[in-house]
Amino acid sequence: MLSLQHISKYYQAGGNKNYVINDISLDVDEGEFVSIMGPSGSGKSTLLNIIGMLDEPSEGYHYFVNEAVHQLKEKKRAALYKQYIGFVFQAYHLIDELTVYENIETPLIYQDVKGSERKAMVADMLDRFQIVGKKDLFPAQLSGGQQQLVGIARALIAKPKLILADEPTGNLNSKQGEEIMELFSKLNKEDGVTIIQVTHSEKNAEYGSRIINLLDGRIESSRKF
């Protein structure tokens, strides 16, 4: 599904290059559930941002569903991730001024989905996550776990092939975290959604089918189950 080859990301600091990602090569197949681990500053989030095309690598080649991302124009790239990628964040990042319903609907608006179709899709999603009763509430009126559910619903609404999750349970208590991870696992197994998550938690990492450990911008180890 995606392939990174000799990807590096560095910042120029004086005469030195300060590497955040240092020559990483990585292939992820469709249907995988990858957990990226590593201590603070090891480059986990940067790697995830590069995969999600929110950030650009300084060097290297990046292929996504057979497109050479490093050669694409901004607009094409946006179109690509609009179509294939859903994001889930540690801080949920719901839009405070929109209701649950509207938050989930927003990606569809940007993908020019028709109004009636949007309605059906959002209703379906609310149903699936059992938050129909909360659709008119604003994010501030929900608990953290509920917000993250909405976040995931929003990420899934456009039927992405790949979900990128940056510490999705970081702000949740262990019970809520477990529920979210169960959900990911189910999505991966039943719907065949590819998932790449960044996590600090060994336990959460083990939901994945592969664990990649990063240290100082390099892959230290990679285990498949």
Partner: peptide, 10 residues
């Protein structure tokens, strides 16, 4: 934040 989220959502 809102701008970021909207951009990420396409």
């Amino acid at each position: 934040k809102e701008i970021g989220v909207r951009k990420v959502m396409g």
